[in-house]
Amino acid sequence: MFRNQYDNDISTWSPQGRLHQIEYALEAVKQGSASVGLRSKTHVVLLALKRSSGELASHQQKLFRIDSHVGIAIAGLVSDARVLSNFMRTECMKSKMMYDRPMPGSRLVSLIGDKAQINTQNYGRRPYGVGLLVGSYDEGTGPHLYECLPNANCLEYYAIAIGAKSQSAKTYLEKFANDFETADLDALIMHGLHALRETLQQDKELNLKNCAIGVVGKDHDWELIEEERLRTYLNQLEAGAPTSGDAPTAAASEDLPQGEAMDTE
């Protein structure tokens, strides 16, 4: 049977100019459950779909607090994410200890990029198997949303999704992208939930257990939205939209808190 000759180690190019091991790492991200991030001019919202390996198992952790002004959502290997979040937490504390300054999100992300890049160039290493969405609210420059991937690419976004079926979420986000900038927090969360719902499997629903929301913003330290508050948003989602995995219909967007959503149709 055919066997790829160019994927035995990280540092061998294929004749097509590709590094297969890195692409496999990107596949690991695609296999993880989805995470969605979007941002207004005051807030960043991160949402994630939590998997559980069975009826009797707990759900995985998808959102991590890094500092009071930074949080991340992940897709891929949770254990790699834990190592990276530990690194990010340490860097944030160093910044506080040395300069009494909250670590700017952009700097944190480039540090991650530098770390991840080493794993893509040195023989015997393995790229991280996790994609990160980093949400931060920075002094001076406000809210930011970044995506960090195992190939050491770090980019800033208005809205983005990673993980399984994230393309459907991205389609939703692209459709309503113009509304996010001026949306208030509730509207932003609802948009996020709509996008996250796109990534569900056919027979699945968003519920209190499999859904996680984290928020950071102006005068708003990183916070998870759980239990009662999460229920309110989920009820709102259920009441206002069909549960199919298709892009939101006109009827669905009518119930979005943001009225102008219709304009994009």
Binding site: M97, M98, Y99, D100, R101, S106, R107
Partner: peptide
């Protein structure tokens, strides 16, 4: 050189100097 819109403000420099 980071060129990312952030710089050290007076209180940050003060903290650094103190350390």
């Amino acid at each position: 050189n980071a060129d990312d819109g952030h710089t050290l403000a007076t209180p940050n420099i003060y903290e650094y100097l103190w350390r």
